[in-house]
Amino acid sequence: MWFRLIPAAMSSPPATAWIWGRAILWLGVYLALVLAPLFVLLAESAPGGGGFWYDLSLALGFAGAAMMAVQFVLTARFKRMTAPYGIDIVYYFHRYLAVVGVLIVLAHPIILVVADPVYLTYLDPTEAAWHMTAGVVSVVLLLLLVAVSLLRRRLGLHYDEWRATHAVLAILAVGLAFAHIDGVGYYVSSGWKRGLWMLIAASWIGIIVYVRLAKPLLLLRHPYRVVAVTAERGDAWTLVVEPEGHAGMRFTPGQFAWLVLRSSPFAMREHPFSISSAPRTSGGVEFTIKELGDFTSTIGTVQPGEICYLDGPYGSFGIAGSHAAELVFIAGGIGIAPMASILRFLAEQGDRRPLTLIHACGSWSRVPMRDEMTCLAERLALRVVWVVEDAPPDWRGEVGRVDQALLDRHLPSDRTAVEVLVCGPMPMIDSVEHALYRLGVPMGNSHSELFDLV
């Protein structure tokens, strides 16, 4: 399913002091948010008397609940927050942190039960107080939430169905955790400690309102109209959209946007795709999308005049801020889409740097945008290397996959002066990045972006 999520696959421009500064700042803000309940516990004398394990369990419970609440912030797509890392890293952080957070949350009841088995009685909803049952159900829902996300494909769960399930389970789990904390009232019953938890709960509700209501409403007020749908080789389609009554999207080449098509922005049926056009004064954008799934297989049936909505732009993949003497683009299949955006932009800018594009596909007849790349090669100092697995009889180009030997043949001799952008399926990105490193391309000079999240 990488096609749906990875066309956005991209990477980050060269790290600068500014980017690092912002990255550290936002990480600090995150830690402050998650650790705030613990700092509060430390700052004031607490009831005490429960013993070390009881207090450890309690602290882990508070921190786990705060982590789960802040998980909502990570996927709210705040551009300033995600920009220093690239939104892909933030989504992956959200994913790994969910596992860490659930382990911390689980430790809360396990430590209590091990320290004193009498706490097992709280598992019985007929005996336990409502807020204890709320805590138990919250933990069960969190486990379910993580399991469903990690096993989505094995469970055969459709992406849209998973998203809706994920949102409902997450809201219920965190809501019940807050009810549990409030109901127990230990450490939070007095004055400003209660105020802090009220503030955390209110902020969490605020994020939900922003993501589920305010943002969709904003998208609804900034519609786009489909002006063309054209077929590309390899079961791909180029969708051209123009803004309806607003300025449209200002993006940098290589970025992506979430597309809402034939659905309401409130319905959570959106899919990320790389923009394949260069920035336009009209604010319009083009997406080149391969037919590979339930949603993408309907792109060819879209008619000019249909309304759609875009949430974006996002992503830090591209050449913004790059001063490399030479650029190399490596694309797998529909991973050519963001490369097309960058190359079209460079052509418009009259860029004369030596450029190499290595584009790998299954067969020559199914290479998307190959005519466009041929045209761009005439306008730029661009050398295009097509790599096909299933070569025609008269084929004299590269055959197979993009491996270290192939890269060694086509990379410029000065590997330290080149910047490489990679976009394609996850296994390809992994193997190409390793090969580039072994061939002497500094790690900071090779860029990719992850979007195969669930």
Binding site: M67, Y96, E433
Partner: peptide, 30 residues
């Protein structure tokens, strides 16, 4: 490589939280 960055950040965050929780419990009972 970018996935490793996210993994490292997540694990480091978890360790920081657990360390602070242990510190809290120890201070409460010392």
């Amino acid at each position: 490589m970018r996935r490793w960055l996210a993994r490292i950040l997540a694990v480091a965050t978890g360790i920081a939280i657990i360390a602070l929780a242990v510190l809290f419990a120890w201070l409460q009972n010392s």
